[in-house]
Design a protein around this nucleic acid. Structure first.
Lengths: 340, 340
DNA sequence: CTAGCCGATGTAAAGGTTTACATCATAGCA
DNA sequence: TGCTATGATGTAAACCTTTACATCGGCTAG
């Protein structure tokens, strides 16, 4: 009954008393085979517990049913629920998800390209806009690829993200409506496009309110907790403080909040703070963080759907999908202190 | 020079002027081939950019070089850095990591078994001890498998985790040494072995200090923030309060802390709280959480190493690897309030 | 000088699938 | 009735690799 080696298409064919070609057709092009035959084949499949050998299939077809997802850091809290969206969508279409992380090491990124030469993956989902393959003169021939969060470095590759400008705009508008005029932007970056876009939204918001941008209130950062803390220290050293800190992401906001707390200040009584992303811990911070929510599962779903589309007819319907970021009002924003 | 289709072993053989068998040998058993030939082959490989077609190889060998990692929830903060350890170790040995999550749905778990019938994966890493395949009379034939965190349900499968009893013991000992005598345990569970082990450690600690266990101070939970909050409410309703809450994990501790804060209590002045796991956010809570650290990356590394060992000679050197949990002292524990 | 051995290499089969092409039976039509 | 179109199925090649076995040449030892 149940042998130790898995059943092959040949076993099924023998039991169903047809040729292996018919079995294959019954599975993949059922309309091409007589109803009675289809029935016999299905019974034989049920009996043997047959599953198509994915290796043989991929070999024959010249493509696999795996999607490689490469992220700089798997541990990023912003990453995991996107993965859920990716995985669900992939599985719904018979694909599996392979993961890799580069830890910002170009060499490692490069190694992942082997997955495509060797037919182990059919498509690529790339987190962060910079190609993880280092700075190369020659762009490596990429497989069908979709970016997440940011457009991919050398362009021409569709991507799915959130409208960073609009999101930032919502945050800065909230701060302005609370009465803030001196608003710092923490976490500007020239390597991460998403971050500089958020800065653009910030500037647009200020401009719309007639507030001149003050370059001394724009600080760089790399999105880590530490960078937030550091930026805060710089501002304190200059003794040129804002009343509100608009941070490029929640991690940065956490760093700022921690720094303020360490100096004995209270949020939002003394300073207001906003984040971006709405990572799970944002709601558990004290005070809970007012931030911009990224629809992560939806991002994952759309990215995978786009890639799957490319894998079938090679012409993606969209080249850019920007989802709507939502303002999540919690307790880290209040009016500026009346007088200093 | 660079064709559109990837180079095959035949291209390499032609250029190196040897047979494909020699090329294969030069790659996989270099000592079996003359040095001069090896050189020619290597040059040809470099020239063509040849990579072994993993599909063909797996097909021929009858096994793949992929490891499937199945977790109930990819988004679990306790999961991702283990994944890093898994992935690094796997890659170091030429394996890739495939991920799947069951979302506690037995049906989904079952579907992943297909990966093995179809040769898409060679081994399985299973998070949480319960087989994700539902309650079945017949245990499905499992591929080489290693459990993480807890022994796998029907036994006989090696696993890697942390010594939960010892870890819990460290937490309860700390609380006792601070002077607590009424210590609640939040998050007992009969479905999660790791949790009930932590309860054992808790009880052992109490016993060692001559404190009788009070069943009314042991509350069930499923390790979520909500379960912590709920358990706290129960205790308050009974008006039978402890002075310290030892929580089964950090999430639960967070729920307890949030609940206490909502009721206007201060940690650690009014109550002490401990967690378990040391998830990233534990250090950012207010107050920062005293907890037990799981060496996550190491767990991942060991689990994968064990599996890889099983994949080669089929007899794992260990059947159980328990790593040492470390106490991380932060600010959520203090002496009990002198008088109520 | 030759038998035997050994090291290096080549030949060819096998692994499981998909699919172009061939075959065959039957239905429809003249 | 005989021919063709059609629908269902079978045959066999191809996808790329690994490896058991065969071959071949040269060396050693007797």
């Amino acid at each position: 009954m149940s042998d130790s080696t898995p059943a092959t298409i040949e076993d099924v064919a023998r039991i169903a008393e047809v040729s292996i070609a018919t079995v294959s057709r019954a599975i993949h092009m059922p309309e091409k085979v007589a109803k009675s035959t289809r029935l016999k084949v299905n019974q034989a499949i049920a009996l043997t517990g047959y599953t198509t050998n994915a290796m043989a299939r991929s070999l024959r077809l010249g493509r696999s049913n795996m999607i490689l997802v490469v992220a700089p850091d798997i541990g990023d809290p912003n990453f995991s629920s996107i993965l859920v969206g990716l995985e669900n969508e992939a599985r719904a279409h018979g694909y599996g998800v392979l993961i890799g992380h580069t830890q910002n090491d170009a060499q490692r990124g490069l190694e992942y390209l082997k997955f495509f030469n060797s037919n182990q993956a059919a498509g690529l989902i790339l987190f962060t806009g910079i190609l993880p393959f280092g700075h190369q003169e020659v762009t490596p021939r990429l497989p069908p690829t979709v970016g997440v969060f940011e457009p991919v470095f050398n362009g021409g590759i569709p991507y799915v993200g959130v409208d960073d400008i609009e999101g930032a705009r919502k945050a800065v508008d909230l701060l302005i409506s609370e009465g803030h005029r001196r608003i710092a932007f923490i976490g500007d970056s020239h390597t991460r496009l998403a971050y500089s876009r958020r800065r653009s939204g910030y500037e647009a918001g200020l401009a719309a309110a007639g507030i001149p941008t003050n370059r001394r209130l724009i600080l760089e950062g790399d999105g880590t907790v530490e960078s937030g803390r550091l930026a805060l220290e710089q501002l304190f050293m200059r003794d040129d403080l804002p009343t509100a800190f608009m941070c490029v992401n929640d991690q940065t906001a956490l760093g700022v909040a921690l720094g303020l707390k360490a100096r004995g200040y209270d949020i939002p009584d003394h300073f207001s703070v906003t984040g971006f992303d709405d990572v799970p811990q944002a709601s558990f911070m004290t005070p809970s963080l007012t931030t911009i929510r990224q629809p992560r599962t939806a991002i994952g779903k759309h990215a995978m759907a786009l890639l799957l589309e490319m894998l079938s007819d090679r012409t993606p319907s969209e080249t850019e999908i920007l989802l709507r970021p939502d303002l999540v009002v919690r307790n880290s924003v209040g009016p500026p202190p009346t007088r200093r």
